[in-house]
Amino acid sequence: MSTTAKNILAVMRTGPYGNQTAKEALDAVLTAAAFELPLSLLFMDDGVFQLLPQQDTQGIGAKDLSATLPVLPMYDVERFYVEQSSLESRGINSAELILPVEVLDSEQVKVLFAESASILSF
C-alpha cells in the first residue's frame, strides 16, 4: 500500500443500482480526476458489488457503471482498494473483479484512512 501526500480517498459503500449514490460517487470521482487531483478508491460493504463482472443493465434502464469504472486508469486513478471482510462476507474472490484491486484487512484500512489527506464518503 502506497499513498502520497494530499491524497483524496473516495469510499464507495453502496451497491451500483439500488439508488443513485454509486453513480453520483463515480461522477464526483471523474470530475476530481479530470482536474488531476490525486485519488484512490476504497470499496467496502455493498460497494464491492460495483466491481462484479457480467453486469447487464438493459432490463432496468440504468447506465452500466461497470463499463465506466475501467476508464479511471486513463484519468490517472490507479489505486483501487477493497476491504477483505466485505469480500469474504459476500463470497467474492478479488481475482474476478473488473478492476485490479489491492485487498486490505481492517488494520490496513485504518492506515489508509489515516494517511489520506481527505475523505469523500459515499
Binding site: G15, P16, Y17, F49, L52, P53, Q54, Q55, D56, T57, Q58, G59, I60, A62, D64, S66, G91
Partner: peptide, 23 residues
C-alpha cells in the same frame, strides 16, 4: 427478478432454490 439479477452481474451466482422471473 431477472432484470435486477442481470444488472448486478449475479446471473451465475444464484441459489437454485430461486426461480428467475421477468417483469
Amino acid at each position: 427478478l431477472k432484470a435486477d439479477v442481470d444488472a448486478r452481474g449475479l446471473q451465475n451466482r444464484l441459489s437454485s432454490r430461486f426461480q428467475v422471473i421477468d417483469d
